[in-house]
Computed example of a mutant assay.
Amino acid sequence: MADVAARAGVSHQTVSRVLNGSPRVAPDTRERVVQAIRDLGYRRNVAARALVTARSATLGVITSSSVLYGPTSTLIAVEEAAREQGWFTSVAAIGTYDAEAVHHVLEHFMSQAVEGVVVIAPQEDVGRAIDAFDAPIPVVLIAARESTVERTIPLAVDHAAGAALVVEHLLELGHESVLHVAGPQDWFDAQQRLAGWRAALTDHGAPVPDPVIADWSADRGHEIGRELVERIAAGHGPTAVFAANDQLALGLVRAFWEAGVRIPEDVSLVGFDDVEGAGQFIPPLTTVRQPFAELGRRSVELLFEAVAGGSPQGALIPPELIVRSSTAPPRARRR
């Protein structure tokens, strides 16, 4: 830093302000310092800085070792948001969600002196394990549930609101009701999507059929689709189906195609997530888009506020319904 200061003709303190993003530096001075840094190839020694400041500028992230779209997209968004703020992330992917495994990871983070932890916790077991761990640092829990632990800050996409958007869209098209192919009910996201679907139908005075409980896979969607085909062919099947994620919807699409059931002429179909390529389904899939970038940015903001001594409140981030060609009025209404 002394070499940079000498080359730029400024003080050591000015170089420090530039490196830390302080607004108290004139633009031309800032440019001279930045150019000197480029010329000298200067890089901050993070380990040395941590020793001096007692700050690691590192966040821990706990996530699932699965490659499911939602948790993976959330992880990427958190890492990008932290990096944009000059912070590092230490990631731990776990395959089991028992308390011992989660506590082991949290203790590992404590030994790295991370300043906060983001937990991508879509499942009940993870939520319980986090609640049972008395972390001395702030924790942002990305899960569609509340937390009663003082230093744990809940943050999530509003999955119930997303499901309500689906139901309202289909009812406005003229469908009398909507069948829900639900995700696994030990996942908070799936619980909230089912609750939002049921509440929206009830609020509109529409019949509430028994949901079909599934996992998140296209294979299971295909199996369920084959069962629904027989009901649709007999004339007493659903005219609209809401799948809890786009993979389930993909399996349904194949089952309907194999049986000659047309989307949306015979049945309207909606997914959830807006995965890459959802617009290339045949037909392009109407689905709920999760704002993963916003989720990552907000999680980092909440941690920074907590690390700085604030008392941030949890939040629900609204999703967006993306209407494509897989939904239309039922056949009776089109006539």
Results as ranks from 00 to 15, higher is better:
residue 219 D to S: 15
residue 51 L to A: 12
residue 226 R to S: 12
residue 4 V to W: 01
residue 103 H to K: 10
residue 135 A to V: 05
residue 222 H to C: 06
residue 17 R to C: 07
residue 240 A to Q: 05
residue 105 V to C: 06
residue 248 L to A: 07
residue 137 I to T: 04
residue 73 S to P: 01
residue 250 L to C: 11
residue 227 E to M: 09
residue 191 Q to I: 08
residue 133 F to K: 13
residue 249 A to W: 00
residue 115 E to H: 09
residue 188 F to A: 15
residue 151 R to T: 15
residue 148 T to G: 11
residue 225 G to W: 00
residue 14 T to E: 04
residue 101 A to R: 14
residue 9 G to N: 06
residue 44 R to S: 14
residue 181 V to E: 03
residue 176 E to H: 12
residue 216 W to H: 15
residue 283 P to C: 04
residue 42 Y to D: 08
residue 22 S to K: 05
residue 7 R to H: 11
residue 131 D to Q: 15
residue 302 L to I: 00
residue 219 D to R: 13
residue 131 D to K: 15
residue 89 T to Q: 03
residue 257 W to I: 11
residue 237 G to T: 08
residue 137 I to V: 12
residue 130 I to H: 08
residue 258 E to C: 03
residue 291 P to S: 09
residue 307 V to W: 00
residue 26 A to M: 11
residue 176 E to P: 05
residue 17 R to G: 05
residue 215 D to M: 10
residue 208 V to Y: 05
residue 114 V to F: 08
residue 327 T to D: 04
residue 72 T to R: 10
residue 302 L to V: 00
residue 205 G to R: 10
residue 308 A to Y: 04
residue 260 G to T: 09
residue 107 E to V: 08
residue 328 A to W: 05
residue 94 I to R: 01
residue 307 V to H: 02
residue 154 P to G: 04
residue 221 G to Q: 08
residue 25 V to R: 03
residue 201 L to M: 11
residue 52 V to W: 08
residue 55 R to W: 06
residue 271 G to P: 02
residue 279 G to E: 09
residue 24 R to P: 01
residue 36 A to F: 01
residue 291 P to R: 01
residue 309 G to V: 03
residue 212 V to C: 08
residue 225 G to K: 02
residue 248 L to I: 14
residue 103 H to G: 09
residue 215 D to I: 07
residue 267 V to T: 05
residue 147 S to I: 03
residue 65 S to R: 13
residue 134 D to N: 11
